[in-house]
Design a protein around this nucleic acid. Structure first.
Lengths: 187, 187
DNA sequence: GTCTATACCACGATAGAC
DNA sequence: GTCTATCGTGGTATAGAC
């Protein structure tokens, strides 16, 4: 059905936004329903539980990450590709609708909720690690690539929290630029 | 009253632990009461609201940070003091009772709850920034100290999330060691 | 001054109407 | 196949008993 999937999509999008801003436990299904212009109790027609809605949200994130990674893969060199990836991260955490730590909150939230959801969220992070690691291996000692990937991803994530505290775009641009410079000479 | 402050203290400690593990919204006052062996409804004798309990939790964190910083100040050189500080951070995020991102979750949670709580939590982060900045200024260009402090704190925080995903102490020790090395030659 | 019984509401979830 | 009225539980908060 046409409208059926539309509403389902609207619910996922609203949940994604609200989980990001208010967290999983802090978001009620009424909030999600209202934000999607779907009748309150009706949510259960599309999702059998709040948890299954969260699964759909993780899947939506997975799509985002894959698209964002695919865009980065257009770069000519591994260094350029990693920088494009980092700019994607910047766009989310600093130029997103709310200064926040993308994935970090989701990860912590869902991990506490259930093992299944926690592992699902970890997959997102692991995907970022393996993709960046693969790129690092192309221009540095492959034995170091895992290590460098962990540094890159965790630094980007840490800057998300810093963004939240500083609320200063200029400062944040400079911090991300430093990570870009490090990409050229990783150590 | 003796027992009065004791119970109050127990409540704060339980709330601190539970907020850390389950988040603010994910923790009910019943949970806190049960964990402190205090009758459920009785919580409101000690705190006028859940929010005021959160304020007390932030204050408890402030105490922790101050103690931890004071311990770090015993180091002979600024480099040594920053490393001691970082080891304190490591102890919390990796050797703590749950792999997590200390302060990060609190910050995101409370910021969403109310402006007042959000600012209170930001104070904790700002305190870490200003203390580390002061130390950096002692052995590097003072014009860079703020920048270096932001790098140090955000990197430590990012490793907290990485710890959550990897769950591998050996790996984490290595990542923190790399930050320690950077402290000697910050750039 | 300390604690308990309870109000009241919002939550996730369901049964069954259209 | 789609949606609505409603249930039971458990949440925060309070009035008032000891």
């Amino acid at each position: 059905m046409r409208s059926s999937t539309e509403k389902r999509e609207r619910l996922i999008l609203a949940a994604k936004r609200l989980f990001y801003r208010r967290g999983f436990a802090g978001t009620s299904l009424s909030d999600v329903a209202e934000d999607s212009s779907v009748p309150v109790g009706n949510v259960y027609y599309y999702f059998k539980s709040k948890e299954s809605l969260a699964e759909a949200v993780v899947a939506a994130y997975q799509n985002d990450i894959q698209e964002w990674t695919r865009a980065a893969e257009l770069g000519p060199t591994p260094q350029e590709r990693l920088k494009l990836w980092l700019r994607g991260y910047f766009a989310m955490s600093v130029d997103g609708e709310d200064w926040n730590c993308p994935f970090g909150r989701l990860l912590i939230d869902l991990r506490q909720q259930s093992d299944r959801l926690g592992e699902l969220a970890c997959t997102l992070y692991q995907f970022m690690l393996s993709w960046t690691s693969k790129e690092f291996a192309l221009y540095s000692d492959p034995a170091d690539s895992e290590r460098l990937a962990q540094n890159l991803v965790s630094r980007a994530q840490g800057l998300g929290i810093l963004a939240l505290v500083l609320q200063d775009r200029v400062e944040l641009v400079a911090r991300f630029q430093e990570v870009e410079n490090w990409i050229d000479q990783p150590s």
